[in-house]
């Protein structure tokens, strides 16, 4: 039992992080707090993807080289999986840009209604 929990300990951490972010997204009324929850959620997803590429006893996915020449034969078991790194590298930049767009929309909402509390917005509509 304890071996099972330890061998999957990384997934427990991501599930807990995702629950924190999800709870903030659906229960908070403040739009900025919702955004912070969204960012925590995305961080959990990114960490999950990165952890699928880990191999025990492997090094970073850069071939051993000297002056641009390979100095030892490449075996797939020696290097961690580069594919999740690539996908999450672009996902992080996209996360930053979507956060920027969301913040701009929150600023425009504040301009129009003078509040960012979700339950106060319908009262201000006329």
């Amino acid at each position: 039992m304890i071996d099972y929990v330890v061998s999957k300990s990384n997934y427990w951490i991501y599930v807990v992080l995702m629950m924190i972010g999800f709870y903030a997204m659906i229960s908070k009324k403040n739009l900025i707090r919702k955004l912070i929850g969204l960012n925590i959620f995305q961080t959990a997803v990114i960490l999950f993807f990165i952890s699928t590429g880990v191999k025990k006893g492997a090094t970073i996915p850069i071939a051993f080289h000297e002056k641009g020449e390979i100095i030892r034969a490449i075996e797939a078991l020696q290097y961690t999986n580069p594919l999740p790194h690539v996908l999450m590298l672009t996902a992080i930049v996209v996360m930053i840009s979507t956060t920027g767009v969301a913040l701009s929309i929150v600023i425009k909402i504040y301009d129009a209604y003078k509040t960012i509390e979700e339950d106060e917005i319908p009262d201000k509509e006329e």
């Binding site: 952890s51 006893g57 797939a76």
Partner: peptide, 11 residues
Amino acid sequence: PGWGDPSSPPS
């Protein structure tokens, strides 16, 4: 797959 499994499907 478990943590750091070299024979996991993505690897």
